[in-house]
Write a protein that binds this DNA or RNA. Structure first.
Lengths: 222, 222
DNA sequence: AATGCCATTATTGTCGACAATATTGCGAAA
DNA sequence: TTTCGCAATATTGTCGACAATAATGGCATT
């Protein structure tokens, strides 16, 4: 299966994608139980395909399963968010380092033009596509690492969990202009083929994002 | 399921562990096909449990599956080893950083005594337990990070793949005394609660190990 | 009234059979 | 002879039913 254009070929794939979507987007609430029989009825498939879909969700760390008891959607806590961002900082920092070495000149040019279009968006005050743009930016660098292990861990593992947090905490993400400057310097480092700097900047960028999220989390708790 | 003391409760668990063992230890060769029917006969279980076991192996990146075609044990190449070690360097560096903050004083004391016992082993010229000792060292630091995502990625993901490589390349691992000194300085940084240094040293340590493996790989190719 | 035990019930784990898809090998046409 | 297409075969995907295990509730005992 391709990592980016995930296309569902089997019935189990579709159920998996559907369930993942429902969980990440909050249709199915955290800590809720996933009954195999019930889901089988809901999606009009056999219990076997639901089972397989659930197993895949387990490997994404989106649900947890106990033998002979059942599967529950993970419960999100502040510690979970922190630990997730620690892993993300580590992996995506390495991705930036590798991207600086492994991206082609064309890919870097594309990345720069993406950045330019983001600048336009920011200046026009349009905030709607901001998150999508941010995701696009990070995706390109991750893919630019050309490291399959890294790519799959980030794109089919961590990123869905992070999206789930974002939806759950109801944050479309502020920090637009400052984040843009950070993106800009990362691209600069990559186009200079300076992997070490790219890694440092990417890690800082993610750390700032995390701090920002935690701040919001505290506000929300009050 | 506990991450360290993995105990098989279900039939599918046992089959999974058995298959993983057979693959990692080379009983089942890389790039060989995993026929569901054949394995079901071999282990005297139903095809469903074999299927589930194979799916779990897929998530460990030990086998690859294509829809309607089947599953094959991954083929190991030099690039794969490099990309694996890049991920390991990144994650385990972060683990060391976190361990410096999150390990208890008792755990650090245990780590130091482990190091002392390793010194004894090295001085006595005994090389047999060297690899086990090395694994034990790294495990403690990984667990010391107290980050569940990090722990599961490393211990139930990457480490089995690395073991597979080691077995496949037939290297019990040299570099005993130098590696010991590196371990020593890492422990020093951790007991000083210096996370930043611990991360740098761990990353260097893993990079050296990788360079050493690559050298062996080239020698073998000649 | 509270607690511990046992039967009941519901849910998950396992199985064998059938359906759908990919591979293989044969034969026909260029 | 080579290549294309089709039929035969083998393997995977899906299904419903049964077995095993855990959660539930009532009953008896203290």
């Amino acid at each position: 299966m391709n990592l980016v254009t995930e296309q569902a070929v089997t019935s189990s794939d579709k159920t998996f994608f559907q369930l993942r979507k429902d969980i990440v987007e909050g249709q199915i609430l955290p800590a809720s139980k996933l009954s195999e029989a019930e889901l089988a009825k809901r999606y009009t498939v056999s219990r076997a395909v639901v089972r397989e879909a659930i197993n895949r969700l387990v490997t994404c760390h989106l649900v947890e399963r106990r033998a002979n008891v059942g599967a529950r959607v993970v419960a999100l806590g502040p510690e979970g968010l922190v630990s997730l961002y620690q892993v993300r900082e580590s992996l995506e920092g390495m991705a930036a380092r590798l991207a600086a070495v492994n991206m082609s000149d064309d890919e870097i040019a594309d990345l720069q033009s993406l950045l330019a279009s983001h600048l336009q968006t920011v200046q026009s005050g349009d905030t709607y596509y901001q998150e999508a743009g941010d995701v696009d930016f990070h995706y390109r660098i991750i893919l630019g690492s050309k490291n399959d292990h890294l790519i799959s861990m980030l794109l089919e593992g961590i990123y869905h969990l992070i999206r789930m947090y974002r939806v759950q905490l109801g944050m479309a993400g502020p920090r637009v202009t400052t984040a843009f400057d950070e993106h800009k310097s990362i691209v600069q480092a990559i186009s200079n083929r300076d992997g070490e700097l790219a890694e440092i900047l990417m890690r800082r960028h993610i750390l700032y994002t995390r701090n920002n999220l935690e701040k919001k989390l505290v506000q929300q708790a009050v």
